[in-house]
Amino acid sequence: MALQTHEESYVASPSIRDAESGYASGASSEASFPEVYFTKPHLKFLNAQLQQLEPQDILRWCITSLPGLYQTTAFGLTGLVTVDMLSKLGGPIKHNVDLIFLDTLYHFEETLSLVDRVRRRYGATIHVYKPEGCETADDFVAKHGDKLWETNEELYDYVAKVEPAERAYSELQVRAVLTGRRRSQGGKRGDLDIIEIDDAGMIKVNPLANWSFAQVQEYVNANKVPYNELLERGYKSVGDWHSTQPVAAGEDERSGRWKGRTKTECGIHNPKSRYAQFLMQQAQKQQEEELSQALQNVTMVA
């Protein structure tokens, strides 16, 4: 029998080579790769290292390390700074990151005007997601009733923000997102890490977590970054018109959101909204009932 040469022994398909070596490569045809994930020690280590870097360096790390990377933004100051920083990163690696904007149908006209200005200024690709089955506020009222944010706040957060975000992540195959959250915004954001993992396994990166409002504003002014005109009228954090007010002197940035209530987040950055938990419980209950019925049918046949 003829002997096989050293060179011939490696003439095999990528999948065979992967199987022989025990490793999978980027060229492998095997669908055996895990989703992007970090162990707790790895995440702790990364946060300790990234904590010492400037936002631009954190963004470079994200671009080179995280597949399926997008930026979620309501076009607040911090998100706008991130967009501008990304547009100015040098190097051979593609630095354009698509934006995801959740149009609740209740944004200020000034916010919608800003979206168009950002698109023109940076040539950004903006994926707009609205409440399912709704194109206008009238559609929303017809489907969910008038002033849902007052009659059922949890349901409003879910249908206007949480569900559209989940739909965006699924359709766009998002694995990691850049957010505009900072510790100095107060509330539940006071102990933010640079990298966080939510309950669904989504990687959330807060590149400007260390910055103060003054630093953000200084960058905006120095780089002539377009911003929401409402900021000149006392607003520091802008959301829906029905739940956003100007901020008084001495109050934290997000005190104008949901004024007079203990609420500080809309559900997108909460572990799970109560309404989302209710839906999960209902689905689990239905599965249990279907399984019980199936077992009864099997018993009757036997």
Results as ranks from 00 to 15, higher is better:
Ala209Met: 07
Leu66Pro: 10
Leu59Arg: 07
Gly79Glu: 02
Val216Thr: 05
Glu265Lys: 01
Glu232Val: 06
Lys40Asp: 15
Ala48Cys: 03
Leu66Ile: 03
Ala209Pro: 06
Phe213Val: 12
Pro246Asp: 05
Arg120Gly: 11
Ser28Gly: 11
Lys130Ile: 00
Ala248Asp: 05
Ile203Lys: 01
Thr82Lys: 00
Asp84Ser: 02
Ser243Gly: 05
Val177Ser: 10
Leu155Asn: 12
Ala19Pro: 12
Thr151Met: 03
Leu86Asp: 03
Val128His: 05
Phe108Thr: 11
Asp57Val: 00
Glu196Gln: 11
Val159Thr: 09
Ile195Cys: 06
Asn210Ile: 03
Gly180Gln: 12
Glu171Ser: 12
Lys188Asn: 15
Thr78Gly: 00
Phe38Arg: 04
Glu153Phe: 15
Arg117Ser: 14
Thr82Cys: 08
Thr111Ala: 03
Tyr106Gln: 09
Met202Val: 07
Gly250Asp: 04
Tyr122Thr: 03
Leu291Pro: 15
Glu154Ala: 08
Ile63Val: 10
Val128Tyr: 08
Val298Asn: 02
Glu251Leu: 02
Gln287Asn: 12
Trp149Tyr: 12
Asp57Ala: 05
Gln49Phe: 12
Arg181Ala: 02
Gly234Cys: 09
Ile197Tyr: 06
Leu230Arg: 03
Tyr219Leu: 02
Leu66Arg: 06
Ser15Asn: 15
Lys94Ser: 15
Leu77Val: 13
Lys44Ser: 15
Phe75Tyr: 04
Phe75Gly: 09
Ser243Glu: 05
Asp116Gln: 13
Asp84Thr: 03
Tyr23Val: 13
Leu291Gly: 08
Glu110Cys: 12
Ser15Ile: 10
Ser25Gly: 11
Asp103Cys: 00
Glu289Arg: 12
Glu132Gly: 04
Met1Tyr: 10
Ala19Lys: 15
Ile16Phe: 05
Gly180Asp: 08
Phe213Asn: 09
Ser28Trp: 08
His127Leu: 01
Tyr70Trp: 00
Tyr23Arg: 14
Asn47Lys: 08
Ser29Thr: 15
Gly91Phe: 00
Thr179Leu: 01
Phe213Ser: 09
Gly190Ile: 06
Ser65His: 11
Gln296Ile: 14
Lys259Val: 06
Ser25Leu: 04
Gln215Thr: 00
Glu154Cys: 02
Leu105Cys: 02
Pro34Met: 04
Arg60Asp: 14
Leu43Asp: 01
Tyr219Asn: 03
Gly22Asn: 04
Arg182Trp: 00
Ser170His: 10
Ala31Ser: 10
Val115Gln: 06
Gln287Asp: 14
His6Asn: 14
Lys224Val: 12
Tyr235Val: 00
Ser13Gln: 09
Gly90Pro: 06
Leu231Arg: 10
Ile194Cys: 11
Val159Tyr: 04
Glu150Val: 14
